[in-house]
Design a binder for these strands. Structure first.
Lengths: 211, 211
DNA sequence: TTCCTAATTATTCAACCGTATAATAACGAA
DNA sequence: TTCGTTATTATACGGTTGAATAATTAGGAA
């Protein structure tokens, strides 16, 4: 009776593997299908190892939630800061990134929804949600402020915040629609719809590259 | 040893009780806490009864999902047709109803999210989602068309659909934001934000009651 | 009232859950 | 090379799960 051979991984990559396996299981099998055993099998380890890296299953779930949200926010923030120094182009790219893969993606949406449904159940999830919401909104608020200044306005904080709330809503709503039933309006690409909508919300400011 | 006494209910009300108990458990305990036993206890019956009314637990979940979505859509549709014959006031009330209780409510949002997270897992859930999405959007599309006509436009179907998609997005996004972190902007009531946003999206058409 | 039907309870089952503990093998240090 | 540490596996445990079956009792029909 010989034991299974294994590889000793670094703590960082093992945790990452386990979290990714957790996310895979949740998105493919649902929350009640993402058991410790299935997650371990997906990660190629035995179930006991999970409790060597996480104090309990819930702890791993919370870390996985944080991972998803920081991943999304940093991806769209990076898209905004990628090329253009132009504030309008930055906001434009930010919006498009929110409505394109890998953010606009069935797997990501399933994960987000699964975690959101636990916000009311577990205060730890509520805190993670609040953190990630505020982080996202503050990025958006800064982008909006720069656009308004670039357009010659002198916006106060309240207006920027209200616009950020609204634009966040537009992005979220179209993100959900586009990801869940995107096949229904493939002839009406959502990024374009979103840009037009935000331009209207901004009072007609164009987000196209400056002439 | 005497058996527990019980009441023989009609099929309709028993099914309704079981579905409501299912929804209560999902929203309070999460998907993996909504077990057959907990649901039965909440409904005041024994677990075996569930399989007398539903072929399996999943079947009951699907019926519960359908119940949530038809409840939401019919609530907001009723709000739109309640008082005003004025198309603008109808759309106005429709939007406000979407962002007010009982639609904008933590329990409802938790349920919606829990079910959405299963759309990718189970094709039956995907079908229910598609049905309810199309039902909602077609109500909204009709409201938008009437508003445009009332404003003197002669809108084509494509424009109405695109506006409905966008407005649906705004409503969904603000609904989520408002329900999850509504306490953050109690001084900026979301219904007002939504109305202003939709007015902007409609090109400046006012949704206030006609003068 | 008496009887029949089926709604409801009670009980059982195999499978699976998350967690705990002990044995072992991988791999860096010396 | 040898040794020690610890990451990893193996195994076990008590409790829970969804489902199946059998026993009963409620409530209408006759």
């Amino acid at each position: 009776m010989s034991r299974r051979s294994f590889h000793r991984a670094s703590e960082a990559e093992r945790r990452q593997d386990l979290i990714q396996a957790t996310l895979d299981c949740i998105s493919e099998l649902g929350l009640h299908g993402a058991t410790v055993r299935k997650i371990a099998a997906r990660a190629g380890v035995t179930p006991g190892l999970i409790r060597h890296y996480f104090s309990c299953k819930d702890q791993m779930m919370q870390d996985a939630y944080r991972e998803v949200m920081t991943g999304m926010t940093s991806a769209v923030a990076a898209a905004a800061n990628a090329d253009q120094p132009n504030p309008r182009a930055k906001l434009h790219d930010f919006i498009v990134a929110n409505l394109s893969p890998p953010v606009a993606d069935g797997r990501t949406l399933s994960l987000w929804a699964a975690f959101i449904s636990h916000v009311r159940v577990d205060p730890a999830f509520a805190e993670i949600h609040l953190e990630s919401y505020l982080a996202f909104r503050s990025v958006l608020e800064a982008l909006v402020a720069d656009v308004l200044i670039d357009a010659g306005e002198t916006p106060d904080a309240k207006r920027c915040r209200e616009l950020a709330i609204t634009i966040n809503g537009v992005i979220d709503g179209l993100w959900i629609e586009g990801t869940l039933v995107g096949h229904l309006f493939s002839e009406t690409p959502l990024p374009g719809v979103a840009i037009k909508s935000v331009e209207a919300l901004l009072g007609g400011i164009s987000l196209a590259a400056k002439p």
